[in-house]
Design a binder for these strands. Structure first.
Lengths: 220, 220
DNA sequence: GCGGTCCTCCCCCGCGCGGCGGAGGCGGAT
DNA sequence: ATCCGCCTCCGCCGCGCGGGGGAGGACCGC
C-alpha cells in the first residue's frame, strides 16, 4: 500500500532552535513533511503564499509582523488558505482571543509534548471539524465585540467622575453616592452634571446605558 | 518494546448503533481500549465512577440526564476525573457553550471521520494542554455569565411592560415612550410602576441595570 | 354570570433630579 | 505670578419621576 500524500507544514518562529526542535519532532512522522520555515511574520506570509502548505505553526511573538497579523493576512489573501495553528507560551495569554478572532484553526502551547504536537497537526489538517470549531470562533468574535474600543469620552472623565458614574451604574441615588464617597451632595451633583455633559446623556439613565454599551464598567 | 498502557475509553450514547460504530473505530487502534458503554446520562455517571476511564465520549442528547449534566456530575464527583469529550451533531449547537462551561475537555462532531475521532481521543488523553485550553473555558464562563438564566421576574412581565422596559433601556423618557407606543403618558407611568415593582427596582435606572444584567435585552 | 388579568387613563402629592450661576482651594504647566 | 483643570460646596428653580389610589373596558376561563 503506497503512502498517502503527506501533510505539508510550514514553521514560523523567530528562534532558530524552536524551528529546529519542531522540525525534528514533525519529521520523525512519516505522514508529516516540513516544507518551509520563516523567522518573521512578513516572511511567513511570503513563504506560505509560495509553498501553499496544509498547516502552519505560527509563533505569536515575531519581529516586523506578529503571528496574529500574519495569520490575518494569510487567511485574507489566499483562496484556499492553510490551517493555521498559533503557538504561544502561556495559555491565559490574551493572544488566544486574538488568534480565534482572526480565524486561526487551533491553539497550541510551547510546552506541549511531541505527541500533542503531532496529534494537533494531524487533527487540524485532516478534519473539517476539529475540536472547538465555528462556535468557539463566534464566542471569540462576541468577546471582541464586547471589549470593543471605548469611546473618546471615557478618557475625558476625571477620577471622581469615573467613580460617580460607576456608582450611578450600581443604581445609587445622588445622596447615596455622596455618603459612599464621603463628600457633600452638592459635589456629587456637580460630578453627575459633568458626566452627563461628557457622555452626551440627558439623564442618569442614559449615562448608565452609555457606561454599559461602551464597556466602561469592565475596565478597572 | 512492550506496549504502553492503552487509553481507556467509555462511550456514552443512547443509540446502540452509534456506540457500536465508535467502538469499532476506536478498537482498531492498538493504543485505545473501549472499557465500557452507557446508554443514559445516569448510567454514564455510574459507569465512569466504577471504571475510571481516561476519556469519555459523551453524547449530548440522552434520556434521564443529558450529557451536559452528566459531565457536570462526573467532574464534580471524582478526584481525578477523566477527560470528557462532548459529542453532538451540529457545531453551532448551543450545547457547545454548555459543554465548555461545565468543564468538558473537548468537543467533537458526529460527522467527524475516523482519523479525527481517534486523533481527538489521543490528544485529549495525552496532553494537559490540548487545543483551546483554559482561556477558552474562561471565554465560555464569561459567555455563560452574560447569558445567565433570566430571573423569574422576566417571565412575569406582560407584553406592554416588556416593551416599556425596552424603551426605558433605550434611554427614553416616559413622554417619549408614550409617543412611540401611541398611548397616554399616564398609561406609560402605570407600566413603569409595574416594571419597577416586578424587578424590585427603586427607579428607572435600577430597572435598566436589571435589564442589562439579566440579559433581558438580548431576548427577542 | 363572575373573577381574573391586562391595558388604558385619571387625580394628587412629594421629592429627587438636572440646569443654572457662583465661589473657594489646590496643584501643575507656562 | 498666572492660568487652568480638578475637586469641593452653596443657592435657586422647574420638572420629570415615582407612590398612592381609583376607574373603566376587553378578553379569558371556570
Amino acid at each position: 500500500m503506497t503512502a498517502p500524500a503527506p501533510i505539508r507544514v510550514v514553521l514560523a518562529d523567530d528562534e532558530r532552535m524552536v524551528r529546529t526542535a519542531l522540525r525534528a519532532i514533525l519529521s520523525a512522522e512519516a505522514d508529516l513533511e516540513v516544507v518551509g520555515e520563516a523567522a518573521t511574520g512578513a516572511e511567513a506570509v511570503a513563504v506560505v503564499r509560495e509553498l501553499r502548505p496544509d498547516v502552519v505553526l505560527m509563533d505569536v511573538r515575531m519581529p516586523e509582523i506578529d503571528g496574529i497579523r500574519a495569520t490575518e493576512q494569510i487567511l485574507a489573501g489566499l483562496d484556499e488558505p492553510p490551517r493555521i495553528v498559533v503557538v504561544t507560551t502561556f495559555e491565559n495569554d490574551s493572544y488566544v482571543y486574538d488568534a480565534l478572532r482572526v480565524g486561526a484553526a487551533g491553539f497550541l502551547l510551547k510546552r506541549s509534548d511531541a505527541d500533542a504536537l503531532v496529534g494537533a497537526v494531524r487533527l487540524v489538517a485532516r478534519s473539517d471539524s476539529l475540536l472547538f470549531p465555528a462556535a468557539v470562533r463566534a464566542l471569540a468574535a462576541e468577546h471582541a465585540r464586547a471589549c470593543a474600543a471605548p469611546p473618546a469620552w471615557v478618557a475625558r472623565l476625571t477620577g471622581r467622575e469615573s467613580e460617580v458614574l460607576r456608582h450611578m451604574a450600581a443604581g445609587l441615588t445622588n445622596a447615596e453616592i455622596a455618603r459612599r464617597m464621603e463628600v457633600g451632595a452638592a459635589t456629587v451633583k456637580t460630578h453627575v452634571a459633568s458626566v452627563l455633559a461628557k457622555t452626551g446623556a440627558r439623564d442618569r439613565t442614559q449615562a448608565v446605558i452609555a457606561a454599559y454599551e461602551s464597556g466602561f464598567l469592565r475596565n478597572p
